[in-house]
Design a protein around this nucleic acid. Sequence first.
DNA 1: GATGAATGAGTCTTCATTCAT
DNA 2: GATGAATGAAGACTCATTCAT
Lengths: 208, 208, 208, 208
Amino acid sequence: MARVRRPEARPDEILDAALAVFGEVGFAAARVEDIATRAGVSKGVIYLYFESKEAMLKALVRRLADGMVGAAEALVASGAAGGDTEKMLRTLITFMITQISNPAASAAPRLVLAEAQRFPEIAAFYRDAVIARATLVITGLLKRGVAEGVFRNIDPAVLLRACAGPMLVHMFLGTVFADPDEPAPPPETIAAGIADLIFNGIKTRHSP
Amino acid sequence: MARVRRPEARPDEILDAALAVFGEVGFAAARVEDIATRAGVSKGVIYLYFESKEAMLKALVRRLADGMVGAAEALVASGAAGGDTEKMLRTLITFMITQISNPAASAAPRLVLAEAQRFPEIAAFYRDAVIARATLVITGLLKRGVAEGVFRNIDPAVLLRACAGPMLVHMFLGTVFADPDEPAPPPETIAAGIADLIFNGIKTRHSP
Amino acid sequence: MARVRRPEARPDEILDAALAVFGEVGFAAARVEDIATRAGVSKGVIYLYFESKEAMLKALVRRLADGMVGAAEALVASGAAGGDTEKMLRTLITFMITQISNPAASAAPRLVLAEAQRFPEIAAFYRDAVIARATLVITGLLKRGVAEGVFRNIDPAVLLRACAGPMLVHMFLGTVFADPDEPAPPPETIAAGIADLIFNGIKTRHSP
Amino acid sequence: MARVRRPEARPDEILDAALAVFGEVGFAAARVEDIATRAGVSKGVIYLYFESKEAMLKALVRRLADGMVGAAEALVASGAAGGDTEKMLRTLITFMITQISNPAASAAPRLVLAEAQRFPEIAAFYRDAVIARATLVITGLLKRGVAEGVFRNIDPAVLLRACAGPMLVHMFLGTVFADPDEPAPPPETIAAGIADLIFNGIKTRHSP
DNA sequence: GATGAATGAGTCTTCATTCAT
DNA sequence: GATGAATGAAGACTCATTCAT
């Protein structure tokens, strides 16, 4: 199938390639030429669309920022689960774990985690554009649940860590640290287990 | 220039400097000369102790591997908390969160997370030398708690993610993504909150 | 800086420059940058055409191998001198001595002699690509002369050494060990003298 | 057998080691530390006896210069062969070919040939200290033979090349270009053959 | 005297970026 | 607009030489 030239799509194709290459070897070790090759263009073309290699990284992070948080916000805003706060948080957790289990989808956050230290601007941007919004979503759900009497009034910082953390670990274990001999546990199982734990803890409850 | 000789400590001093520099700018962007300067030696000295820049990274990871997991194992083995499994897990969580809240202590894991993709050998080593051991600790505690009837019999993979995850997020929020205008929440609060959540969940319980 | 593009000739121009520089200071002491400057290009260009400095040396030797032996073979094959074996050997000797008297032409063999010890691959290549062929030429002429009854049946190894040797010495005396105050003897004289000696020896003959 | 310390022998032991190492990899690629190790001393000791690596090379060449020419001169001066000029030249040729067939003995001339281009001082020294003297020996024998009526009055430059050349080729073929699968021809055979050729040429002679 | 740790100048090599075509 | 040859700054690594011990 001949690929039709769509010059408007160029920058995005380049960024796709950049994400792939950065994800594999990191920003510093990535060669612009490899990105170009992967994008199916020549080296020079890259510089028609981006100032520099660093500019590509920043554009990439900017483009990717919206990804999962946006979806999370939409999920909550859509009032899925009929307004049931617990169900909504459960749905959110399941959605995020499922998403992040896809190595292609997790490439972006992994890249940011790897490069944020080196590029404070990227860290700052990510903090504002992703982390702050994620915090809002979690805090919002928590408040609502507390107001409804279904959640205990815990520290939102704790809930943020408790929700986002397992995702991160799951992501790292499924990619960078994946044991080739051992299959990754299915995301649904993990998602359900995590949600269950967050809701009920691990203590046994003696029925009255 | 002063030519002091302290052969004993040299390799370790160099690795300290390497960790600092790698931690700041990443492995690829780190200059050997900067590491040397940081260690108070000349460029050439580095190569008296290490084959290459990459060898330094590997030595660094090897040296650091034992750090926190070792402490965790010791904690559990020492039978602290008088054999009370719940207390032990709580102590463990508190200890880990406290440790990881120290940016100097978290430099090592952050470095590994950032470079593991690029260096599969390091990833494999870390998986075997750290992650596997951490998994054993968690699994052991879980089994014991279940046997004692104090824990529900949940998926160890879930508990691992639920315990390690919040630490990771806490670490990233306290370093790379730290907002200079906002103080980080105190580790004790977070530790206590996380432990509470893991044990009890967020659901309200209606007394019988 | 001028950026001219002459991709066709580049590799050869670079090898010319490399031969000049290697010839002057030897492979190890030659700086890639000097070769580049000599070739009128920038340092980076070298690496567009050659893997490494060592690759240049090997390419150089490969390119130069054919030079004189090829000409010698052609000379013999062409049946110059109307099939007269003695004349042919004499022509060959004269041709070689004349060629090797040109310092530019002798740069290649001198380079090989200087570097062969360090690079066994080069030595092996030269042995097969040059020495073996030269041996064949000499042996062929000797056999023919013997068959015709004009040559005595001597050891080909001796004739090889007797023919190639004076060339070598002449080459070294005319370049590396040239006395600036003393002019080199003209190649024709030497060639004629060597040929005469090889054919007739130095003993006086008393006519019957 | 315990080696007794003989500090006076040090410089010579070092030069022996230097010759070995220079001979193997060339001057530029030789490491002072390797020479020291080979000589059984520490790096610092080298600098107690020699100004620099280059000084070692020069000392080496100076020490080795006398070697074969000295022996040749002595041979001639000793009036070996009872004053028979032809016999003396033949003895000389045999002696030289035999000597040079020993790779250890030929290391020095090979080194000089390899490095002379790079170090004009060495070339000049060798020209004066070795080549000039060898020329004198050959010229002397030639003159004498001519005076006696046993040699034709040929160009001494030709005889020099004809005598020294086969030695050189023999040396190179027996070391640098030695074919591991093919044994080198015995020096005596080559020496006899060369002498025979130089005296009688290759032409058949029809008895009168 | 002897050692070998330390220094730092020197070079190969890479690769982001430019720009003639 | 597109290409990819060319540039040259930058950085890892080596090793002759020094000198504290």
